[in-house]
Design a protein around this nucleic acid. Structure first.
Length: 177
DNA sequence: CCCTGATTCGC
DNA sequence: GCGAATCAGG
């Protein structure tokens, strides 16, 4: 079973899309061997489309409408002997959710409200639990640092803090630069 | 070359 | 309806 667009998945798709996630991002999060093409296709079929351009402010790409070009390239050509069978993305075992750097042992996971369906744009997206589990959730608190709340941002974006060893030497050397 | 969404069309 | 292939652009 690959990926029939169940209502759950469609719901998640809508939410993530309206939230500004890119098609590829959504594809990864939905998992289930869904490609970004599938996501985009579905998005269009659902009638959703343009929104705030997330990343590349594709002016002419997104906003501007295509003059309905009649597709300059032939739909398909019969290659007698394809020298290289187009590479297909191997189906990942379990991409799961974007797992941030291993949470420090001191992190206390208490909240865990907000599912992929209820997670808002400005809610902490720190994953809690096993993504494949039905109880998987996100922190859900107010996201203050990037997509995470303050607490989780600290563990997610751990500053390149060096413990010891070279700091002293480095500092000494820097005095002479 | 990476990414983005848009479109077409065979299935 | 679905999504790979393709296009067009940042």
């Amino acid at each position: 079973m690959t990926a029939g667009w169940t209502e759950d998945r469609v719901g998640a798709l809508k939410k993530l899309w309206l939230e500004g996630q890119s098609a590829s991002q959504i594809a990864k999060q939905l998992g289930g061997g869904v490609t970004r093409n599938a996501v985009i296709g579905k998005v269009h079929r659902l009638g959703l489309s343009g929104r705030a351009t997330p990343s590349q402010p594709a002016r002419t790409t997104t906003t501007a409408f295509r003059p309905a070009k009649t597709r300059t390239t032939p739909p398909k050509q019969d290659y007698g002997q394809p020298s290289a069978p187009r590479r297909i993305e191997a189906v990942q075992p379990r991409p799961t959710a974007p797992v941030p750097p291993t949470p420090l042992p001191v992190v206390v996971e208490q909240p865990g409200t907000a599912t992929v369906l209820t997670l808002g744009a400005h809610m902490c997206k720190w994953p809690i639990g096993d993504p494949s589990s039905r109880e998987f959730s996100f922190c859900g608190r107010r996201a203050s640092e990037g997509v995470y709340c303050g607490e989780h941002a600290r563990v997610a974006y751990q500053p390149a803090v060096k413990k010891n060893g070279t700091s002293e030497l480095t500092r000494s050397l820097r005095r002479y630069i």
